[in-house]
Design a binder for these strands. Structure first.
Length: 265
DNA sequence: ACGAACCATTTCCTTACCTCA
DNA sequence: AATGAGGTAAGGAAATGGTTC
C-alpha cells in the first residue's frame, strides 16, 4: 500500500511542467520562505480550490531533488571509508570526486547543485542520538546545539532526527495498539458468540419448562458490588451469564480507552 | 502578530533482496 | 552455477505545511 502511494506520487512528479509550474519552481529555488508568503496571495488569485490544490502539489513536487527541470542528473555513491562523494554527471559522462565539505550543507537550507543532500548518519552518531533519545525524547535548544556540535551535525539535523525518531516510536506504538485491539475484538467476538449460544439455550429451557425457570428466577438476586447473581434458595452464586458480563464490562471499555494498558489488565 | 517547536505527511535516496536473462 | 541488470520493498533523512504555545 505504501508502495502504491509512492508510485502514484512519483508518477505525478514526472508530469510535464507548465510555465506556471516553472515559475513556481524558480521561486522555490530562489527562496522557499517567499513562496510560503506568496501562498496566501496565490490562494486569492486562483479561482477554484482544486486549482489551488494542484498548484500546491506541483510546488512541493518540483521543489524536490532531481526534479524534471534539473539539467543534471546526479548519481551519487557514498564511500564512508573515503568520506568522499562520487558524482556522475550523466550529460558529460564525467565522474567527479567531490570532497564532503563541498556537499555538506551550509547553515542555510538551500543546497548547492539544487539537490538535497542525503547523508547517512554514522553508526557512532546514531548511537549517541539513540542514547540521548532514551533519556529524553525531545531537546531544548541548548542541548540541541551542544549535541550538534558534538556530533558535527547541524542543529537542524539533530532536530529532524528527533522528530523522525518520535514518529517512528509512535508508529511502532500504534502498531502494538492495533494488535491489542485486534486481539480484544477477537476475544469479544468469541464471548459474544458464547453468550448468544447461552441465551438460545435459556430461551429453549424457558419454553420447555416455564414453571421451573420462573421459580428459579424468583430466587435469584443481584449482588450490587460484583453484579453477580445469587440464588437465595440454593446458596449458589454467579451464574454463567452474570459472571461473564460483570467481569467483561470494565475490561472492555478500559481496553478501548487505552489499548496499551489492556495488556497489563 | 510573530517565531520556535512540534507533528503529520510527503519526497527522495540508499540498501537489500529477488527475479530473470 | 555465477553474474549483472532491473524491479521492488523497507528504512531513514529531509522538506513541507499546519498547529500550538
Amino acid at each position: 500500500m505504501i508502495c502504491n502511494t509512492r508510485m502514484s506520487l512519483s508518477l505525478g512528479s514526472s508530469t510535464t511542467a507548465t510555465p506556471h509550474d516553472e515559475s513556481i519552481h524558480h521561486q522555490n529555488n530562489k527562496n522557499r520562505k517567499s513562496i510560503n508568503d506568496d501562498h496566501q496571495e496565490l490562494t486569492l488569485c486562483l479561482s477554484t480550490s482544486s486549482e489551488f490544490t494542484n498548484c500546491n502539489m506541483n510546488n512541493r513536487q518540483l521543489g524536490g531533488v532531481n526534479s524534471s527541470f534539473s539539467n543534471t542528473n546526479v548519481k551519487r555513491e557514498r564511500d564512508a571509508s573515503l568520506e568522499e562523494e562520487v558524482v556522475e554527471n550523466l550529460e558529460t559522462k564525467k565522474v567527479v570526486i567531490v570532497s564532503p565539505k563541498v556537499l555538506v550543507d551550509d547553515d542555510e537550507d538551500v543546497h548547492k547543485y539544487g539537490t538535497r543532500k542525503k547523508l547517512r548518519l554514522t553508526k557512532e552518531q546514531s548511537d549517541v542520538l539513540e542514547d540521548i533519545f532514551k533519556e529524553h525524547t525531545s531537546l531544548n535548544s541548548r542541548k540541541k546545539r551542544d549535541l550538534a556540535r558534538r556530533l558535527s551535525l547541524r542543529p537542524r539535523q539533530v532536530e529532524v532526527w528527533f522528530q523522525n525518531r518520535r514518529a517512528r516510536t509512535k508508529l511502532k506504538q500504534t502498531e502494538v495498539d492495533c494488535e491489542i485491539l485486534r486481539k480484544c475484538y477477537k476475544d469479544l467476538k468469541y464471548e459474544n458468540r458464547r453468550l448468544n449460544k447461552e441465551l438460545q439455550e435459556l430461551k429453549y429451557l424457558k419454553m420447555s419448562a416455564p414453571f421451573r425457570v420462573q421459580q428459579s428466577a424468583a430466587t435469584l438476586s443481584m449482588c450490587p458490588t460484583c453484579e453477580r447473581t445469587y440464588n437465595s434458595a440454593t446458596g449458589d452464586n454467579s451464574t454463567k451469564i452474570s459472571f461473564s458480563i460483570g467481569d467483561q464490562k470494565p475490561h472492555f471499555y478500559g481496553s478501548f480507552a487505552n489499548p496499551s494498558t489492556a495488556l497489563l489488565s
